[in-house]
Nucleic acid binder design. Structure first.
Length: 746
DNA sequence: GACATATCTAAAGCC
DNA sequence: TAGATATGTC
C-alpha cells in the first residue's frame, strides 16, 4: 500500500490522502489524474478505514467509469459496494427506486435523441407549427437548455415572455413534457433533473443518500452543467467531503451546457476548499508541451498553472502546408508509412489523426486504405444506432412499457404490415383526443374496426403479438424473448425476403446483437442474478460510442478532437489547421467560442507523446466547393522555437501576395474569392437564381446552351450552382432535359 | 402505400 | 459533395 502511494509525486500524494473537506484537484493534461483518483479511493479503504459503501465517484463517460473501476479493483481487489458511475447511470439507479414518488411508472423507459425528435415532430404537426422554423433539433436544444437550468415550461414562459418564437417554444416544451410523462419516459436531461427534483421535494430521500455517500468524487468537473452542480452540491452539503478533479483548459463542452464557472468558482462555492495543482506532465516531450502551452496562454480567465516535464525536448512540432486536401491526406499516409518502416517499435495503433469535423475523415480513409494501412474510425454513429438494432430495441421497450407511443410508432409498420402514414396519423389523433396511449386505444375493437379491413386485421395481429410477448417477457430470458420478437413480428423473415446485400448485413447485425445479449446474461449469471429486460434496456440506453475505440486493435485511429479527450498517442496528426475549419467559422469573430476552440486545440496537441504533426491545405473542397484557405491563427500562436515547417503567414493580411494565389483551383473555375466572401456569395446567388435566367449570365458561368422545344435552355454553372432555365426564366427539372439536344455554346 | 426524384443544408456529441 | 427530408408519381 505505502509502496503504491510512493509512486505518486508529492502533489498527487497530498491529493490522494486529503479525504475530509472540499478539495479541488486541478489536473493538467497528462498529469496522472486517474492514477491519483484511484489511489485516493484505495487510500480511503485501506488506510482510512472508509466503508466502500459510502463512496460515490461520478464520471461523464462509461469508459472513464470503467477505467476507474478496473484500476480501483486492481489496487484493492474489489469495488463491491462503491458507486463508480456516470452521472446519468447513478441518477437512473436512484430514480428506479423512487420513480413512483415523482409520478412515473416503475418501468419508465429512457428516450434517446431519436425518440425525442419524433415526439417533437408529432407535436409540431399537432400544433400546426412550421417544422422549418422550429426544427426538431432547435426545439430540443432549447428544451435541453431549459432543463439544464432547471426551468419547467411555466418558468420558461415567465422568463422569455409571450413573444415569438419563445411563446411557441414554451408551448412545444409544455406539450413535450406531457407527452413524455404520458409515455412513461424520460430523456437524458430528465435523469439528472428528476433526481434533483426528487431530492428537493423529498428531503427524507435526500437525507438517506447524504447519509450513505459520505465521500464524493467528481471527475472532469469542468464539464459539469448547472444541474449536475446542483446535484453534487445537495449531496455534499452536509458532510462536505467533496473532491472534484478537472482542468479548466480542457473545457470543450460549453456548447453542450458545461459551465466553466463551476470549476473557476469552486473555492467560492465551497469556502475553505483546499486546492491542489498537478502540474507535472508525464505524457509529452518538452517541445510539444511548450508548443501547446504557448497556444493556450492566449486565453483569458484561466486558472494560473503551467505544466512542466522532466522529459527531453524531443522532436519539434512539424507543420506542413499541402496544396489541397487530397495531398494533405496523402502526406499523412506517407508519413505513417515512412515512420512504420523506419521505426520497428511503432505499431499502427500508435498513430492518431484528430480532425475538427467528422466529414474530414473521408479523405484519410481513402489515402490510408490506398496504401493498405489499417485504420479505425470513431464516428458519431453508434453501433446501437443502426436501424435494425433500434427497431428491435423499440419492440423490447414496448413489450416492457406498452405506454411507449414513440417506440410503437417506430415499429408498428416495421416490417411492412400495411399500416401506413395515414393510419398512424389517425391513431395518433385518436389517442391524443382521449389522452390515452396508442396501445390502449388499439385494444378497443370498435376503434380498430373503423379502419379499412386489411389495416384492421394487421392492427389486431400487432396487438396480439405485443401482448403475447408481454406475457412471455415475465418468464423468459432476454435472449429467448429476443428470438421470439424476431420471429413473432416477422422481422427477420421480411429481411430474408429482400435478398439484398444490405438486408443480409442487417441480419448479420441482428445475430451479432444476440451474442451481446448472451454475453450480458453470462456476466449476470456469474453474479447469480438473472438479467431482466429492464436491466438490459437500461444498460443499453446509456451506452456510448467512445467505447468503440479499441486501443488494442492494430490500426490508426481517426476521430474528432472532441472524442480524443482523455486519450494519448505517440504520434498525432492534426489536419485542417485553417481559418473556418479550426477555428470553426462560427467562432472566428472571437469571444467565448474562440476560446473554446483554442482549448480544443490545446487538448489535441497534448494528446501527442512523441511527435505532433499539424497540416493545412491551400485548397480545400468543402460542401462541394473548392476554396482557397488561410492558415489557422492557432498556428501563429505556437512558439516558433517548438515548431518546424513552412513559414506561417497570413495571406489575407498580405495583399501583395494575392497575385500568387489568383490562379485556378485544381477542381474549380473562377477567380480567387476569399472563403468567407464566397460563402456569403453562395447564399446570395442561390437567393437570386431566378433573376439569372433570360439575362446575360455572368461570364464564365455558362456551361452550355441547348435547344429545348422552342426555347433556349441555358445551363449555368460555377462550382456554386447548377441551374437550368428556359426562355421564360422558368427553372427546368432534370427530367425535362432528357430529350434536349445540346448545341455548342458559341 | 411504396418508390423515385427534387430540394435543402452544412460542428463538436457526453449520457 | 453527400445525406436527410420533402414532394411527386404510379
Amino acid at each position: 500500500m505505502k509502496e503504491s502511494l510512493a509512486k505518486l509525486n508529492p502533489q498527487q500524494r497530498e491529493a490522494a490522502t486529503t479525504l475530509e473537506g472540499p478539495l479541488l484537484i486541478l489536473a493538467g493534461a497528462g498529469s496522472g489524474k486517474t492514477g491519483t483518483m484511484t489511489h485516493r479511493i484505495a487510500y480511503m479503504i485501506r488506510e482510512a478505514g472508509v466503508d466502500p459503501w459510502s463512496i460515490l465517484a461520478v464520471t461523464f463517460t462509461n469508459k472513464a467509469a470503467r477505467e476507474m473501476r478496473d484500476r480501483v479493483e486492481a489496487l484493492v481487489g474489489s469495488v463491491q459496494g462503491m458507486w463508480i458511475q456516470t452521472f446519468h447511470s447513478a441518477c437512473l439507479r436512484i430514480l428506479r427506486v423512487h420513480a413512483e414518488r415523482l409520478g412515473y411508472g416503475k418501468n419508465f423507459v429512457v428516450y434517446d435523441p431519436v425518440d425525442q425528435k419524433s415526439v417533437i415532430k408529432s407535436i409540431l404537426k399537432e400544433l400546426d407549427m412550421d417544422p422549418k422554423r422550429y426544427t426538431p433539433s432547435y426545439v430540443l436544444s432549447e428544451i435541453s437548455h431549459a432543463k439544464e437550468q432547471a426551468k419547467d415550461p411555466a418558468q420558461y414562459r415567465r422568463d422569455f415572455g409571450d413573444q415569438i418564437p419563445y411563446s411557441d417554444l414554451a408551448e412545444l416544451y409544455e406539450r413535450y413534457e406531457q407527452e413524455l410523462k404520458k409515455n412513461n419516459a424520460m430523456d437524458f436531461d430528465d435523469l439528472i433533473l428528476r433526481t434533483v427534483q426528487l431530492f428537493e421535494r423529498h428531503p427524507d430521500i435526500l437525507a438517506q443518500y447524504q447519509k450513505r455517500f459520505r465521500y464524493l468524487m467528481v471527475d472532469e468537473y469542468q464539464d459539469t452543467n448547472m444541474l449536475q452542480y446542483k446535484l453534487v452540491y445537495m449531496l455534499a452539503s452536509v458532510h462536505r467531503n467533496l473532491c472534484v478533479v478537472g482542468d479548466d483548459d480542457q473545457c470543450i463542452y460549453q456548447w453542450r451546457g458545461a459551465d466553466i464557472r463551476n470549476i473557476l468558482e469552486f473555492e467560492k462555492d465551497f469556502p475553505g476548499a483546499k486546492v491542489i495543482k498537478l502540474e507535472e506532465n508525464y505524457r509529452s516531450s518538452a517541445h510539444i508541451l511548450s508548443g501547446a502551452h504557448s497556444v493556450i496562454s492566449n486565453n483569458r480567465g484561466r486558472k494560473a498553472k503551467k505544466l512542466w516535464t522532466r522529459a527531453e525536448e524531443g522532436e519539434k512540432i512539424e507543420y506542413y502546408r499541402a496544396s489541397d486536401d487530397r495531398e494533405e491526406a496523402r502526406y499523412i499516409a506517407g508519413r505513417i508509412e515512412a515512420m512504420m518502416r523506419r521505426e520497428p517499435d511503432l505499431t499502427f495503433s500508435d498513430f492518431a489523426i484528430l480532425y475538427r469535423t467528422n466529414v474530414q475523415s473521408r479523405r484519410f480513409e481513402e489515402s490510408l486504405s490506398g496504401r493498405g494501412i489499417p485504420y479505425q474510425v470513431l464516428s458519431g454513429l453508434r453501433y446501437y444506432d443502426r436501424k435494425e438494432i433500434k427497431d428491435i430495441l423499440a419492440y423490447m421497450r414496448l413489450v416492457l412499457n406498452p405506454a411507449d407511443d414513440v417506440g410503437l410508432l417506430r415499429i408498428i409498420n416495421e416490417p411492412r404490415r400495411g399500416i401506413g402514414a395515414k393510419s398512424q396519423a389517425d391513431l395518433e389523433t385518436l389517442a391524443r383526443v382521449e389522452n390515452r396511449n396508442i396501445m390502449d386505444v388499439l385494444r378497443e375493437e370498435e376503434i380498430v374496426a373503423s379502419f379499412p379491413r386489411k389495416t384492421a386485421d394487421s392492427l389486431r395481429m400487432f396487438v396480439q403479438a405485443i401482448d403475447a410477448l408481454h406475457i412471455e417477457q415475465e418468464h423468459t430470458s432476454v435472449s429467448d424473448l429476443y428470438d421470439a420478437i424476431l420471429v413473432r413480428t416477422g422481422y427477420v423473415e421480411a429481411l430474408e425476403e429482400q435478398r439484398t446485400v444490405e438486408a443480409d448485413s442487417r441480419i448479420e447485425n441482428l445475430m451479432e446483437f444476440k451474442s451481446v445479449i448472451l454475453e450480458k446474461e453470462r456476466e449476470r449469471s456469474a453474479l447469480d442474478e438473472p438479467l431482466t429486460l429492464l436491466a438490459f434496456l437500461e444498460e443499453l440506453a446509456l451506452i456510448s460510442d467512445v467505447d468503440n475505440h479499441d486501443p488494442r486493435e492494430d490500426a490508426v485511429s481517426l476521430m474528432t478532437l472532441h472524442s480524443a479527450k482523455g486519450l494519448e498517442f505517440p504520434v498525432v496528426f492534426m489536419p485542417g489547421m485553417e481559418t473556418g475549419i479550426f477555428p470553426s467559422y462560427r467562432t472566428i469573430d472571437g469571444g467565448e467560442g474562440l476560446e473554446e476552440e483554442r482549448r480544443l486545440c490545446y487538448v489535441g496537441m497534448t494528446r501527442a507523446k512523441k511527435k505532433l504533426y499539424m497540416t493545412s491545405a491551400e485548397w480545400r473542397m468543402l460542401y462541394g466547393k473548392t476554396e482557397l484557405t488561410s492558415e489557422s491563427m492557432f498556428l501563429k500562436e505556437i512558439d516558433r522555437k517548438t515548431m518546424t515547417g513552412d513559414a506561417v503567414y497570413d495571406r489575407k493580411a498580405d495583399d501583395t501576395s494575392f497575385a500568387r494565389y489568383d490562379k485556378k483551383a485544381p477542381y474549380s473555375d473562377g477567380p480567387y474569392v476569399s472563403p468567407l466572401a464566397s460563402l456569403r456569395a453562395t447564399r446570395e446567388k442561390q437567393a437570386e437564381k431566378k433573376t439569372l435566367a433570360g439575362q446575360d449570365v455572368e461570364a464564365g458561368w455558362i456551361v452550355s446552351h441547348a435547344k429545348f422545344g422552342t426555347g433556349t435552355v441555358i445551363e449555368a454553372s460555377g462550382n456554386v450552382l447548377t441551374v437550368i432555365f428556359d426562355e421564360h426564366g422558368t427553372k427546368k427539372l432534370a427530367k425535362d432535359l432528357a430529350p434536349m439536344r445540346r448545341v455548342d455554346p458559341s
